[in-house]
């Protein structure tokens, strides 16, 4: 997919402060930051691959492994924590058989935690792809996942 990365790069000027917007666009396109894309970015911005890894690993948004077909984000903000968000995450880990941060072997879901989705009054919340589910009940999680193949 080098063409897509190139197409992203030409939209930005070669200034170092564009590194994060470029990484964000690459992730939007590929779903993750691939080792090849890092090489391309390095050549384009004339900064070392090390530096790019240094910056990208600093921010929680960037991932370096291929995501699943659906993204599963469990909110562990304070309000969600107080209302059982951690239990929701534990249960999902068990149901899916993967740890937080991993992708299921069948590439159906990738499971991650987020610090806060900003819907604290409706906690606990889980985000699947773009949809946010509010007041999630642990005993209803398996049913919810059935909607996503």
């Amino acid at each position: 997919m080098p063409e897509t990365v190139d197409a992203i790069l030409v939209k930005h000027s070669r200034r170092p402060e564009n590194l994060i917007p470029i990484l964000q666009d690459v992730q939007k396109e590929l779903g993750y930051i691939s080792p090849e894309s890092v090489k391309d970015i390095s050549r384009y911005l004339r900064i070392s691959e090390n530096q790019i890894f240094g910056v990208s690993s600093f921010y929680a948004q960037f991932r370096f492994t291929r995501p699943g077909r659906h993204s599963l984000r469990v909110c562990l903000g304070t309000a969600c924590h107080v209302r059982g968000g951690a239990t929701v995450l534990d249960t999902l880990e068990n149901v899916l058989g993967v740890k937080c941060g991993d992708t299921t072997p069948d590439a159906r879901f990738d499971l991650e935690r987020v610090a806060c989705l900003g819907c604290c009054a409706l906690s606990p919340v889980v985000q699947i792809d773009k949809r946010i589910y509010s007041r999630v009940a642990v005993n209803k999680l398996s049913e919810l996942l059935k909607f996503y193949e």
């Binding site: 562990l76 304070t78 309000a79 610090a115 806060c116 819907c119």
Partner: peptide
């Protein structure tokens, strides 16, 4: 960059 978990005034 409303980072405080549990806050959503700015949003």
């Amino acid at each position: 960059d409303e980072g405080d978990p549990g806050a959503f005034m700015n949003r």
